[in-house]
Design a protein around this nucleic acid. Structure first.
Length: 480
RNA sequence: CGGGGUGUAGCACAGGUGGUAGUGCGUAUGGUUCGGGACCAUAAGGUCGCAGGUUCAAAUCCUGUCGCCUCGACCA
């Protein structure tokens, strides 16, 4: 009887092998990361989910500031005429913007769009504040939400409104702007590996896949557990494209009017989706220690017995000086708590009961490997810190190994199709650089070009699709 | 925007052929428990997604509509 119940509870999360999409939905709901709202495609980010975002923000914001960026805030609304100033840009975004047509009961003379991204607002502002080469560069960033009226939505991965940061910078020269574009891409990559324990492929997007209005788009791509790729962050080089459309000019040292060179770059709450799908397992979420809202959860055993709660509180006090720690002294059974915090992805569980107190020890259980170790209370701080670092490194390596094991090489279309159908993952293949081949591959296999990686390999000399001489090695895959 | 599924208590669901709503989990209270999702007792909790229609009578039949999930085409 009891066993049947156990089974039922364990099955609360759909197995990822059985139905990955359902597994994902189960996680975001049951772990209480989000709730659905009454507006289609909009999600409520609950405290546990938002705390992950705050930790991501904290780390990224620090990295932005260390590289000289300043935070600003731009308006939510963009007048239609402003959005239309850059042709490619408006063409790319117009189909998915939300329009405000009324103020109160009055119809507006010009409708306003809810920002889908803020390039045009930054450009208009830059054109007003920049006169001289001495005003450059301007390195701005904003944390905000944007709205894109997407047709299908999924929590974190694609929502109608989503939280992000968008950096916008202007520079005197193209070289300087290019450098900035790459610098920020590297910051994203480092954040992913050092904080989220997600290994990424850095590279450039093809013309087909680049951002509307950009000269070049750089991207970090990661591989999810189901073998689908996720564009995890992007950094764009605009050249003087927007500068010309918005007339952003400055006087150089020689008294000549010059256009500025511009970049923009962003990551979103999608990063949380990536964390879920890269690290999670059938027991639930598995959070990398550096973003985990709770890094150590203390579960007292037989907490009604004398001295147990006192000791648990004492350990909590000690640990709270170095990690984010929670003591769960609720009336739930210990076993229930174990399962609960495993589902929530808490990296380390600390068990302390009468037997431990007697022996001056505690039990530490790690979420990544499910191993339990016994450590002395005397050097608890040291052991916990070491364990959290170990967990981070192990999670990063496990993710890297998983990605590498699901990265395949194709040298002809037959192999390419076979891989897409039977072995979900990244496909490395040579490409001639022609749009027709890229289109054909997408049409025939459903896979898109993810990026032209900076780290090139010569897999063969001919294009996987048409057989003409190859120009680049490209990562392909089905993507979110 | 097309295909499929779904909407009944906080959650998961049951309620062919119409008769005024039920089960499990959870919640509250009291007690026994506590090293891997405990048990007993008592109790609270629902305008059956919404709007029309048929009918003496609708969770059930009809029409419309909305939300959500999911698979495609488009996007971070």
């Amino acid at each position: 009887m009891a066993k049947e119940k156990d089974k039922k509870l364990v099955e609360a999360i759909t197995s990822m092998d059985e139905d990955f999409a359902q597994w994902y939905t189960d996680i975001v709901k049951k772990v209480e990361l989000i709730d659905y709202s009454s507006v289609k495609g909009c999600m409520i980010i609950r405290p546990y989910g938002y705390a992950i975002w705050e930790n991501i923000q904290k780390d990224l914001d620090k990295r932005f500031k260390e590289t000289g960026h300043e935070n600003v805030y731009m308006p939510l609304f963009i007048p239609e005429s402003l959005l239309r100033k850059e042709a490619e840009h408006v063409e790319g975004f117009a189909p998915e913007v939300a329009w405000v047509t009324h103020g109160g009961s009055e119809e507006l003379t010009e409708r306003l769009c809810v920002r889908p991204t803020s390039e045009t607002l930054f450009c208009e502002h830059f054109s007003k504040i920049v006169q001289s080469y001495k005003d450059l560069p301007k390195l701005y960033n904003q944390w905000c939400s944007v709205v894109r009226w997407e047709k299908t939505t999924r929590p974190f991965l694609r929502t109608t409104e989503f939280l992000w940061q968008e950096g916008h910078t202007i520079h005197a020269t193209a070289e300087e702007a290019e450098e900035e574009t790459i610098r920020m891409l590297n910051i994203y990559a480092k954040h992913c590996e050092e904080v989220l324990a997600i290994p990424v492929i850095k590279g450039r997007k093809t013309e087909k896949e680049k951002f509307a209005g950009a000269r070049a788009t750089y991207t970090i791509e990661s591989l999810m557990h189901d073998g689908k790729a996720l564009q995890t962050g992007t950094s764009h080089f605009f050249g003087d494209n927007f500068a010309k459309a918005f007339n952003i000019r400055y006087l150089d040292k020689n008294g000549q009017l010059q256009y500025v060179y511009e970049t923009s770059w962003g990551v979103t709450t999608r990063l949380i989706g990536a964390v879920i799908m890269v690290h999670g397992d059938n027991n639930g979420l598995k959070l990398p220690p550096r973003v985990a809202p709770i890094q150590v959860v203390i579960v007292p055993i037989a907490q009604h017995k004398e001295g147990v709660l006192e000791k648990a509180n004492e350990l909590k006090e000690r640990l709270s000086k170095i990690v984010r720690v929670k003591l769960d002294d609720s009336d739930k059974m210990p076993g229930w708590k174990f399962a609960e915090y495993e589902m929530k992805g808490v990296p380390v569980r600390l068990e302390v009961g009468p037997k431990d107190i007697e022996k001056n020890q505690v039990v530490l259980a790690r979420r990544d490997t499910m191993e339990k170790i016994v450590v002395s209370m005397d050097n608890l701080e040291e052991e916990v810190m070491k364990l959290l670092d170990d967990i981070h490194n192990n999670m990063l390596e496990t993710a890297r190994k998983n990605r590498d094991e699901h990265t395949y090489v194709a040298t002809n279309m037959e192999d390419f199709k076979d891989i897409v159908e039977n072995k979900p993952g990244f496909i490395k293949a040579m490409w001639c650089g022609d749009r027709e081949c890229e289109d054909k591959i997408k049409e025939e296999t459903g896979a898109t070009s993810r990026c032209i990686p900076f780290e090139q390999e010569q897999l063969s000399s001919t294009c996987v699709c048409c057989g003409k001489p190859a120009k680049h090695m490209v990562y392909w895959g089905r993507a979110y």
